[in-house]
């Protein structure tokens, strides 16, 4: 009896015998989903290493990050890979989402996977934000203060939600420990499970969406070997690029949070700059809670506002599917414009 055979592995389940060549074309997917998964793996491995030195207490957090960065052997590189891996993860996942919209990859039977993907994006952003908080430097501390105070603005349940999130009447040791718990365990669990589920659904839904065959055209396939090969090359080049980025641009860390000094400049992490900008013009609960939910809801509706079959599937910027494309383009432009306005003097 053979306990284990290649054919029984998860890797084989995700890499079938042969897949349509159209879905593996670089200019179709740009490998964005793969790069997002790769970045996640990088952050998981480097994150594990970081837990050996990180101290999740208000007194120890910032000092331990500085220690990791400046004293621990290879610490700056491991922390840098973790930081840049996480930024890549956000960027790759967002671009992957855009790719799916602009090629109509969300359409039936892939609606559920679209929603799972959207959930993964939310997990990614929360993962990123909770990691930002763990630095416990000046900007992270104040961003956390602003971010969590948003929950207090929610009618009726606000204070309860805030307490559940922060674990105390104000930001302190309990909040840091909770964010640490969420960062390294809660979100990691949901994230990893979500990624596996997302990939499994991808297979169940028939793989990456592909265009209709024209009359007389035969579908071309690539082998499992070829797929492995392409993935390996992409991962290797991505790894090298990530290393060089890490070496060239040190991952940021500000001065230790100083609660007595007052906030000089509160700056949200770049992914939430647009929320910060909205906070300047809208009431907190609208800017911080309602607006992100509206964006999320609009994105979730995409597979349902475009249910047409037929032509234009798996084709970049297909005219037949202009509605979701326009919606995403408008959302993207508004968010980028708000973010830019926030960083401009």
């Amino acid at each position: 009896m053979k306990l284990w055979r290649k054919e029984k592995s998860l890797i084989y389940a995700l890499h079938p015998e042969k897949i349509p060549a159209s879905g593996a074309r670089l200019t179709y997917t740009f490998g964005l989903g793969g790069i997002a998964v790769f970045s996640t793996l990088v952050t998981l491995v480097t994150g594990l290493a970081l837990t050996f030195y990180y101290v999740p207490t208000p007194d120890g957090a910032h000092a331990s990050v500085v220690l990791i960065n400046d004293v621990v052997s290879f610490g700056a590189i491991i922390r840098g890979l973790h930081y840049w891996g996480a930024q890549w993860m956000v960027i790759a996942a967002t671009l992957h989402l855009a790719r799916v919209v602009f090629t109509g990859g969300y359409r039936p039977p892939r609606e559920l996977n679209w929603l799972i993907g959207l959930g993964l994006l939310v997990v990614t952003l929360l993962w990123d934000f909770s990691g930002y908080v763990l630095r416990w430097d000046d900007s992270a501390y104040w961003a956390l203060l602003v971010g969590t105070n948003l929950f207090r603005e929610i009618p009726v349940w606000g204070e309860t939600l805030y307490r559940a999130l922060v674990g105390d009447a104000q930001i302190g040791a309990a909040a840091l420990l909770r964010f640490y718990g969420w960062h390294i365990f809660g979100l990691a669990l949901v994230g990893v499970f979500g990624i596996v589920y997302h990939l499994w659904r991808l297979r169940k839904d028939g793989g990456i969406s592909r265009p209709l065959l024209k009359a007389g055209e035969a579908r071309a396939f690539i082998s499992r070997d070829e797929l492995f090969f392409r993935e390996f090359i992409t991962a290797a080049l991505a790894a090298a690029a990530l290393v060089f980025l890490t070496l060239l641009v040190p991952s940021p860390i500000g001065p230790a949070a100083n609660l007595d000094a007052g906030a000089a400049e509160v700056r949200a992490p770049w992914i939430f700059l647009w929320v910060q900008d909205l906070l300047r013009v809208l009431p907190p609960v609208w800017a911080g809670i309602v607006a992100p939910l509206v964006v999320l809801l609009a994105l979730a509706l995409i597979p349902f506002i475009d249910r047409r079959g037929g032509n234009g599937r798996a084709i970049w910027f297909a005219r037949e599917r202009w509605k979701p494309q326009l919606l995403l383009a408008v959302i993207a432009m508004v968010l980028v414009a708000l973010s830019v306005r926030e960083v401009l003097p």
Partner: peptide, 28 residues
């Protein structure tokens, strides 16, 4: 060819490894 791709990817990984070691060995 596959060989060329493997060569390029291998070279990139090797360079990255050397760069990491060099930086870890030369703190400011």
């Amino acid at each position: 060819t596959r060989a060329k791709w493997i060569f390029i990817a291998g070279l990139a990984l090797l360079a990255a490894t050397f760069a990491m070691s060099w930086q870890a060995d030369h703190p400011t």
